[in-house]
Design a protein around this nucleic acid. Structure first.
Lengths: 136, 136
DNA sequence: CAGGATCCTAAACGATACTG
DNA sequence: CAGTATCGTTTAGGATCCTG
């Protein structure tokens, strides 16, 4: 850590509009939104407001821990709005903020593009034997 | 491996257009393109054709291994075109395929959106003390 | 120059048990 | 119901050395 960590010096390290810089503030945000579960949570929330359990059911394979963690990140980032009703048993609803909806739209656009263009990419045969799957 | 692995039976496991299914074929593709370095490689390649060393220099912080691995994945997926000239010393050029450019455009759009909307998301104070950074 | 091989650390992830 | 705490496993990622 350098002695003079002023706003000025911080700005010197990365050019504005450069996601490539390792210390670009947008990197963690991008990471959260493009993370394994972050992507799916954003896509699901794009379709409505849901409770914790609803989200778990709609995202097959996600664990409680990962869902909670992902939601907290996205909330801290300002993508997700968490609304807790003070009742017992607890009732919490999750939805997208206004910026969250815009970001989610981009994420969904990418996901949809990939689905729609699967055949233009590598042929099914190649996809079946890629290193990821065949590593066993 | 089930006895009848027909196209039909494969289609039964996941509904078309559902990235949420754990076994959706688009998931690995999405994962590669949204991976830490995959994103950056795609964005850089969107601006032109580059050699291995060029890419390393343009993506600060990436290691040889990760660059090689990322490029191989993206090539296997059909996003990246690898052109090797048979000369010594070796000369290899990387560029985006046609579908790769479309995919990269989506990735870049998301990254740019985040940069442009940083201030609409959490205030700088919150970003400075998020769990990721302050975990030490 | 463009990687492959190897070894290692850190982080992500998952399962389970428990609590207000 | 909506999480937290803890633990163990798996994977991503990094450093280094080596080769065609």
């Amino acid at each position: 850590m350098t002695p003079a960590t002023t706003a000025q010096s911080l700005l010197e390290g990365w050019q504005r509009g450069n996601v490539l810089a390792a210390d670009c503030p947008s990197r963690p945000l991008l990471a959260h939104v493009t993370s394994r579960w972050g992507t799916l949570v954003m896509i699901v929330l794009l379709t409505g407001t849901f409770r914790f359990s609803d989200l778990r059911r709609r995202i097959p394979g996600i664990s409680e821990r990962m869902l909670a963690q992902t939601l907290q990140q996205l909330e801290a980032d300002g993508f997700v709005l968490r609304t807790a009703f003070q009742v017992v048993p607890p009732h919490v609803e999750y939805s997208l903020t206004a910026p969250g909806q815009e970001a989610a739209a981009h994420v969904a656009a990418l996901a949809n593009w990939i689905e729609d263009n699967l055949t233009r990419l590598k042929p099914p045969a190649a996809r079946g034997t890629d290193p990821e799957t065949a590593k066993a």
